[in-house]
Structure formats: structure tokens, C-alpha cells
Design a protein around this nucleic acid. Structure first.
Lengths: 190, 190
DNA sequence: TTCATTTAATAACAAATGTTATCGCCTGCC
DNA sequence: GGCAGGCGATAACATTTGTTATTAAATGAA
């Protein structure tokens, strides 16, 4: 699972193996809850196979805010980093193969790895990237119609459209399932 | 301007004065453009007095994405950090007193300051905070109606409602000026 | 397989929001 | 003080989106 990343990291083999050894492999069915709302997140997940969504409950409605696929890492970032109760649920969509690591191990690794400027810069870069992604998604809510957001989704994140049930996509785009259905049928007419 | 922050930073007086000396004070009227779309941002601004908005043009519409007030720092973050052409304009709303610093000076300071773990951690913390703010604002677009978003704005960021012209607030909330007017008059009826 | 459950499409109607136009009030400027 | 232009309220109408209900298709479990 992790071998393909090996040459991206300027570490001794010894250190590398020590870090990799902290990860645990699990296989879980679809609709498995990995983190409950209110819980303090103690695990970071990496997806080997499958797909995960982050969602929250608002007045009884199930609202999805993010999707994750193979090779992405997933956590409730506020909860994991700041030890706040998680505002969100994390749940598998498909049967999945995951690797998880304890927060304590992540902290230890980060503490050691900070001394390596290349890695430190890459971590800061990842943080920025996450922020930019949020900004981009957020902008689309100010400037685009739901139909345009769906069109962008098809173009930019086809995995979501192909692998995720439609009612999750609807709330992700900020519309009802009925309206997403209408958007799709209008697209087909053209 | 910066004296009130002095005791927050574990630096020698000499270093502190060197860093503060990099800032330049300017006074500008309302509606002054500080950064054009497409330009690469080379300045970071700190607001001593006044108020600033970040906006972009979408199909001829003026869409505001952020507001900033006293003691906040402002830049087109993607452009300033990554040297991309800025996707946004930055403009004063009120006549303002600003302090600006060159990107090169920021880079130099950051390079030196990274060696101080307290500061480094605080910088990373600020990055996270920015991300959390975006996430929160973004969530409100999925879960709340425009009327609810306006209500939250009154409660959580009263400065915006008090000091910013209404047509800027409208696009910030993702509605037309006409609809924001309706929202306000409905609130008064209750 | 069969049956129950989940998921998606559609229709009819209701509510929210956008568009265009008009009016009045300020504010800054001469 | 008077005037022009910017700003905000409101009305009438158009369009978009939500709600509820129904049906059909797909999926999963026994």
C-alpha cells in the first residue's frame, strides 16, 4: 500500500519502516461509521480501496460535505488536530480497505519530521491546498447555479458522479434529490 | 500600531524593531483598489483603521467573498503565497489607514522565525484557523437559508452589517440586493 | 429465486428567489 | 442650497427550487 510513496520521502529505510509499522489495515463493509458526531477523533484513515463520505445531521437532514477515494487520507480535521468533539460523521459508501493510524503516532512522527525542512514545507503546502480546495468549492456556491455546479462536478470530479449514490451528491451540491433529478434530465435533453 | 502585539512575540527588541521597520504606513480613500485581478500579489496589508473587501467579477457581476476590519491582515492568499495571478480584487470600503509589507520581507522574516517553535506553531495554527473559517462559512451555504445566514451575520459579525453597504453584503450571502431587502423587512415585521 | 428496502424519476403544487422597473432618500460635490 | 449619482425599498412578474406523493427500477438479504 505505501511502497508507491516510498521515494517521495527523504527518510532512512529504518525510519520509514518504523512509521509504516504504525498503520493498521482493516476491511469494512459499506455504510460503516468510522467516526461519530460528538466523538473526539483519534484515528486518521488512508483509503486503499473504496470510498468515504463526511456528513452531518442538520434538523434531521443528512448533509454530505465531502467525498474521499483511493489514496486520500480522511479525518475530521478540527477534531483530529484540535481535539474538539467532531461536528461530522465519517462513513464508508462502498465496502472499503483502509489503513488507520493513532493520533499519538501521528504526533510523534510529525514532531520528528518537522526537523526535515522538505517535509515541513510539504506539510504546510498540504494545509494550504486543503484551504484552497475549500475556497474553490465555496466560490462555486456564490457564483454558480446548482446546474452549473453539477456540470463542474462531472468535469472535475467524475469519480463522485460515477461512484456515489445520487442523494448524497444532491446535498453536497446544496439541492434536493428531486431537483438534482431535474438537473440531470435537462442535461440529457440538450 | 504594532506595540500592542509586542509582548505576544518571543523576539529580542532588536529583531522586533527590524521586523516592524519593514512595514509602510499609507492612508487611502474609500474605493481604492489595493490589488487587481490577474496581478501577482506582492504586498500584505494590515488594517489600522478602515475596512476592506475582497471581490471578484463573474459574468459582469460584482461578487464579494470576504470582509476585513481593524487589526486584520489581508492579501490574496493564493497569489501572495504561490505567486499565482490573483483571482480577486482587493478594495477599501471606507477611507483607511493601512500598513503594508513586501512579500520578500515576509519571506525573510518567516525563514528566520521558523526556528522558533512557538512562532512556527502559531503560524500553522493561523493557517488552520483560516481553513476552519472557510469551512464554517461554506457549511452555512449547504445548511442554511439566506435569511438564516443573514441572521447569523448580525449575531456573529455585527461589524459587517453596521459598516458595509448592503449590496456588498447581498453577494456575500449569495443573494440579490432585492432579496436581501426582503429578508430585512421580514425580520422587522416579527 | 422472492421479498423488502433503497434509490431514482416524475408530476403537481407551494414557496423561495431572481429580474426589471420605479421611487425616494441620502451623500458628496460645486 | 441645489444637483447628480449612489443606495436601498418596494412592487409585479418570471424563474428556480422545494415539498409531497406516486411509481418504477435496482439492490440486497433470506
Amino acid at each position: 500500500m505505501f511502497d508507491k510513496f516510498r521515494n517521495n520521502f527523504p527518510l532512512t529505510d529504518e525510519k520509514w519502516n518504523e512509521y509504516i509499522g504504525c498503520f493498521n489495515r482493516i476491511e469494512v463493509p459499506a455504510k460503516t461509521t468510522l467516526l461519530e458526531e460528538g466523538e473526539i477523533s483519534k484515528k486518521l484513515f488512508v483509503i486503499e480501496k473504496g470510498c468515504i463520505r463526511v456528513w452531518f445531521n442538520h434538523n434531521g437532514k443528512d448533509l454530505t460535505s465531502q467525498f474521499f477515494f483511493e489514496n486520500q487520507s480522511v479525518s475530521s480535521i478540527e477534531s483530529f488536530i484540535k481535539k474538539f468533539p467532531s461536528p461530522v460523521f465519517i462513513e464508508t459508501i462502498e465496502p472499503s480497505i483502509l489503513w488507520w493510524i493513532h493520533k499519538e503516532d501521528v504526533d510523534t512522527i510529525l514532531e520528528e519530521v518537522k526537523e526535515i525542512p522538505e517535509l515541513r514545507d510539504r506539510l504546510i503546502d498540504m494545509l494550504f491546498q486543503r484551504t484552497f480546495d475549500y475556497m474553490k468549492h465555496f466560490f462555486s456556491f456564490i457564483k454558480d447555479t446548482p446546474a452549473q455546479r453539477y456540470q463542474s462536478l462531472i468535469e472535475e470530479k467524475p469519480q463522485i458522479v460515477q461512484r456515489v449514490p445520487q442523494h448524497y451528491i444532491a446535498s453536497y451540491l446544496g439541492v434536493t434529490t428531486v431537483h438534482l433529478s431535474r438537473i440531470k434530465s435537462k442535461l440529457l435533453q440538450k
